[in-house]
Amino acid sequence: MYDSKLTAHFAAFYPLGKPFISALSKVLTYKQFSKGDILRQNGQTPMIWYIEHGLAKGYYQDQEGNERVTRFWKEDQVMLLTGGNQYQTAADSIMLLEDSRITTLSDSSVLYLYHTFAEAAKLSNKIILNDRNYSEIKSFLCSLPTRHGYEQFQQLFPSERLLLQDIASYLETTPGRISVIRRNPE
C-alpha cells in the first residue's frame, strides 16, 4: 500500500483516527498527468484532487475568447471540483502546467468515508474553508498596486515555474507591465 502525502495533509486539518486513515488509504487512486492535460468539471470527474508533485492553473474563457486565470495550485494542495450550487469550482477548466502526480478519491469513496466516519464531516468543512480562504488571495493581490501585488505573488507562488502571461492574467494586468516590474525591481 502506497503511503500518500494526502493522509498527512488531511491530518494537518483535523485529527484522524486509524480506522479512517486505513479506509482512506484503500480508496485513494494515483494518476500521472502530462503537462497540458486538462481536468474539467463533469459527472465523471472526481471532486477532490491532491497535487503530490506538479503545478496547475484554473481558468475560463471570457466573452471575447481570452483566457482568464483564476487560480494556481502547487504541490501539497487540494483542488476541489464541485458540482453543487453551494460551492463552485474556481474555473471552468484546470490545466496541468507540469508533468504532475495527482492523488484522488472517487465521489463514491468520498460519500463512503463521509457516511462511515464521524471525523469526515469536520475534515470536509476544514478543507472547504481552506479552499475558500486560498481562493481569496487573488482578490487581495489584485487590490494592491501592481508592483506590490506581484511581489506578494512571488512569495506565495512558484513564479519562476509560471508563464508571464498566466501571472499577468491572474493579477489582472498585462504581460508588459510584469516585464517592466521584473526588469526594474525597487
Rank of each mutant, 00 (worst) to 15 (best):
T116L: 10
V69P: 00
F117K: 00
Y134P: 00
F117Y: 09
N85I: 05
T70R: 06
D76R: 08
L81M: 10
V110N: 04
D99T: 14
M79P: 00
L81K: 06
N85F: 09
S93Y: 07
L113D: 10
R68P: 12
A91W: 01
K74W: 09
S108Y: 10
E67W: 08
T82R: 09
I127R: 02
A91K: 02
R147G: 01
D62R: 05
G58S: 04
Y114E: 07
C142D: 07
E136W: 14
F153I: 08
D92E: 13
G58F: 03
I127L: 06
A90H: 07
L105D: 00
Q61K: 15
E119M: 07
E75H: 00
Q88T: 09
S108M: 08
M79L: 13
L129H: 13
K138G: 01
E151H: 12
S143P: 01
Y114N: 12
Q63Y: 13
T116K: 11
T146E: 02
T116A: 11
F117C: 06
R68E: 13
H148K: 15
L123C: 06
E119S: 10
Q61E: 12
L81P: 00
N133E: 12
I128Q: 04
R101S: 10
L141W: 03
G65W: 01
I127S: 01
D92W: 03
M79Y: 06
Q63T: 12
T103W: 03
A118V: 14
F72Q: 00
N130G: 11
Q152W: 15
Q154E: 11
S139F: 13
S100F: 03
E151F: 13
Y59E: 08
H148D: 13
I102T: 00
D62H: 06
L81A: 05
R101N: 12
A121E: 14
L141A: 08
S139H: 15
L144S: 07
K138N: 05
I94N: 00
S93R: 06
Y114Q: 10
Y60R: 06
T116W: 10
T89L: 00
L123P: 06
S108L: 08
A118Y: 10
E119G: 09
S139P: 07
E98N: 07
K74T: 10
I127H: 03
I102S: 01
L111Q: 14
M79G: 02
Q63N: 11
G83E: 06
Q152K: 15
K122R: 13
Y134R: 15
G83H: 05
E98K: 12
E67Y: 08
R147T: 13
G58M: 05
G65P: 00
A120H: 02
Y150M: 03
L80W: 04
T89F: 01
S93Q: 11
E119W: 07
F117M: 04
L113F: 04
